[in-house]
Write a protein that binds this DNA or RNA. Structure first.
Lengths: 194, 194
DNA sequence: TTTTTGTTAGTGAGTGTTAACTATTTTATT
DNA sequence: AATAAAATAGTTAACACTCACTAACAAAAA
C-alpha cells in the first residue's frame, strides 16, 4: 500500500464519514467504521485529525463549500427576483445531486456533541440567512417584493426549503426534488413577488 | 422503597427519558441514565418496557397526546380562518410550555433506530398534515383562503412553524416563542388569507 | 401462594483514544 | 549522486469505559 498525503487522506476520511452518516445516521459514525471504509487502521485516522470532533468540523466545512457555490450562482442572476429564485432552486439542485448532504443537514445530534460544533453550525446558518437578507432587501428596494417584514419572509423561505427536503428524505428520495422545488417556487412567486 | 405500578413507572420513565434527551440529546439517552434519574436499577426498567425501542415508542405516543389537544383546540374555533390561526398558535403555545418536547421533535437520530420507529414518526407527521389539509380545504371552500395549491401551502405553514421552533432552540430559548409566532402569523395572514 | 416489582452481578460487543513500533518518503549532508 | 537523518504515514495491541440486555434471586403486594 502506498502512503498518501494528509490532505488526500483528510478528503477521503470526510467523504466516507458523510457516506456513513447517510447510510446509518450519526450513530453509525465511528472511527472504526471510517477506518474500515478508508481502508486504513483506526490509529491512522488520528494522523490526519485531532479527534472525532475535528472530523465533524471537517464535515461542516464541506457545507461551507456549498455556500461558495450558492454565492457564485446567485451573483450570475440579474434581477433581485431572479436571485430569490436561484437561491431556492440552487438548494434543491445541489441536494438532488448530493443527497448524502441532506443527512448531514439533519443530523442534529452531531452538532449537539460540543459547543464548538454548535457554534460552527449557527455560524453557517447565520451566513446563509445573511445572504438571503441582502437579496430580499434588494428586491424590496427595487419594488419586486411584497411589503412585509423581511425577517419573517426569511423564515418562510428557509423553513419551506427545509421541510421539503425533509419530506424528500422521509420518502426515501422517491420524487424529483427539483420538480417539487419548482412548483413550490411558483406558489412562493405568487405570494411574495409583485 | 415502596413499589409502584407499571403504569406509574412507565410514566416516570418516559418523563425522565424526555428530560434526558432535552439536556443531552438522544446520544445521552441510555438505560443507565434513565434508571439513575428514576432511581431504580437498570434491570427494573425492563419490567416496564420490552427494550429501548419500546421506550422511544412511548415517547412518540406522548407526541400523539399533543395531537389530541391540538384537535380539541381547533374544534373550538369558529371560522376556517380562526382554525388556521389556532393551528399555528397552538403549536407555539404548547412548545413554549413544554420546551423539552422540541428536543424530541428534532432528535432525528432517534427515529432512525428502526423501521418501526420511522413508520410511527411518518404516521404522526401524516396525521398532523391531514388535520391541516382539512382546515385548508374548508377555508378555500368558504372563500377565506388564497387560491393556490393547498399541498404547497401545507409545506409553507408546517415548514415555517418548524424553522421558527428550530431557531428558538438554537438561541437556547432566549425569546418568547408565542410572540415570534404571532408576528409570523400576521405575515402569513397577509400572504394567504383573503 | 402466586404475581409483580425490585435487586446484584455479569454478559458480549462496541466506543474513542493512546503507546510503542515500523515502513516509507522527504530533506540534508557528504 | 549516494547516503544518512528526520519527518511523516502507517501498523498491532491494548486502554478504560459505556452500551443494551439477562440470569438468578429477594421482597412486597394481591
Amino acid at each position: 500500500m502506498s502512503r498518501l498525503t494528509t490532505e488526500e487522506r483528510q478528503t477521503m476520511i470526510i467523504d466516507e464519514a458523510i457516506k456513513i452518516i447517510h447510510s446509518g445516521g450519526y450513530e453509525a459514525l465511528s472511527i472504526r467504521e471510517i477506518a474500515k471504509q478508508v481502508k486504513i487502521s483506526e490509529p491512522a485516522i488520528y494522523r490526519h485529525f485531532l479527534n472525532k470532533e475535528d472530523i465533524i468540523l471537517g464535515i461542516l466545512n464541506r457545507m461551507l463549500e456549498f455556500d461558495k457555490l450558492l454565492n457564485k450562482n446567485i451573483a450570475a442572476a440579474k434581477s433581485a427576483k431572479q436571485k430569490i429564485r436561484q437561491f431556492v432552486l440552487f438548494h434543491f439542485e445541489f441536494l438532488e445531486n448530493n443527497p448524502e448532504m441532506t443527512s448531514v443537514l439533519f443530523s442534529e445530534e452531531m452538532y449537539n456533541q460540543s459547543e464548538i460544533l454548535k457554534k460552527k453550525l449557527v455560524f453557517i446558518i447565520q451566513k446563509r440567512k445573511q445572504l438571503l437578507k441582502v437579496i430580499l432587501d434588494d428586491a424590496k428596494n427595487s419594488g419586486e417584493l411584497i411589503d412585509v417584514d423581511n425577517f419573517e419572509l426569511m423564515s418562510i423561505i428557509l423553513g419551506t426549503i427545509r421541510i421539503i427536503v425533509m419530506e424528500w428524505r422521509l420518502s426515501n428520495f422517491s420524487f424529483q426534488l427539483t420538480d417539487r422545488g419548482k412548483s413550490m417556487l411558483k406558489i412562493l412567486d405568487k405570494l411574495i413577488l409583485l
